[in-house]
């Protein structure tokens, strides 16, 4: 897009502005990204690979995959259901529901963990009952999963709602007149229309689920080999002054971030849809 001379700045001003912006982005984005990898390889390949092969690291990776593997499908199911509800029907309290879906974004990750401790912790509302029945939620996998579900709750719904709103329901209504049932309409008509948006929401949800730190840290108890997710394992290594090992594990998470960003850019390219604010 070329602009006429009256609606742009003179060349020196342009250069100055571009220079300042690029300097800021380099300092705040590129430098940290480079630092992760440089610090990880500071002691060489052997140390790097050994840190990833360690028993505790492998357990942490497994737990992270498991927790995300449970919470992302749950929130995807919710996202689709809520988007269907909000965009295909008009009912009282609809806009309140939309605001409530966004609520977890306004909640500190630490508080997202705290609420579960208050419910299921040793001194929580149900703590006594759970102890009597020998059920462990806090400092165990269920706690990690529900904390992750809480913080990743809005991602899929938030991508789908604006998308399905702009698409309207004409095609679905036509399908109804032709005698299709609900599931048929969803699989054959709606899903093909929303697949990119859905994929995009799932990607963001997954990145946050695997990388969540604050909420999981509150409910996990940091039991090595049992309740340490990958981000928590990074913290433990870092606090034990095993910096190279900590950064080696951090590169896995940084890779996850880079893959998410590339796929996101690719999806945007495909659909020509520019990103909404995602938290």
């Amino acid at each position: 897009m070329s602009r006429s001379t009256v609606t742009t700045e003179s060349a020196p001003v342009r250069l100055l502005l571009i220079g300042t912006a690029v300097a800021f982005l380099s300092l705040f984005l590129l430098l940290p990204l480079a630092a992760v990898f440089v610090e990880a390889f500071r002691k060489g390949w052997e140390v790097f690979l050994a840190s990833l092969h360690e028993e505790a690291a492998l357990d942490a990776i497994k737990l992270t995959l498991l927790a995300a593997g449970i919470s992302v499908p749950l929130n995807t199911l919710f996202g689709v259901s809520a988007a269907w509800l909000v965009t295909k029907f008009k009912f009282r309290g609809r806009s309140l529901l939309v605001s409530l879906i966004d609520l977890p974004f306004a909640v500190s990750p630490v508080i997202a963990g705290l609420v579960w401790v208050l419910l299921f912790g040793a001194k929580g509302w149900f703590g006594h009952w759970l102890a009597e029945h020998d059920i462990k939620i806090i400092f165990a996998l269920p706690g990690i999963v529900i904390a992750t579900v809480f913080v990743t709750f809005p991602f899929v719904a938030r991508e789908l709602i604006p998308l399905m709103e702009t698409q309207g329901s004409d095609q679905e209504e036509a399908a109804v007149t032709l005698g299709a049932n609900g599931w048929h309409i969803f699989w054959r008509v709606t899903l093909p229309n929303i697949k990119w948006g859905l994929l995009y929401g799932v990607l963001l949800c997954n990145a946050r689920a695997m990388g969540e730190f604050g909420a999981v840290s509150v409910v996990s108890g940091h039991i090595s080999g049992e309740t340490n997710t990958l981000p928590l394992h990074v913290e433990v290594l870092y606090n034990e002054y095993q910096f190279s090992a900590a950064f080696a594990c951090a590169t896995l998470l940084a890779f996850l971030a880079l893959i998410t960003l590339s796929l996101k850019t690719a999806v945007e390219h495909f659909t020509g849809h520019s990103s909404q604010n995602n938290h």
Partner: peptide, 24 residues
């Protein structure tokens, strides 16, 4: 590239951001 990278702080797990900024 820079435009795509703006989302890095959203995508990078906060613990990684924390130890990296500290290293810097």
């Amino acid at each position: 590239l820079l435009d795509a990278m703006v989302d890095l702080p959203f995508a990078l797990p906060t613990a990684v951001a924390g130890i990296t900024l500290t290293a810097i």
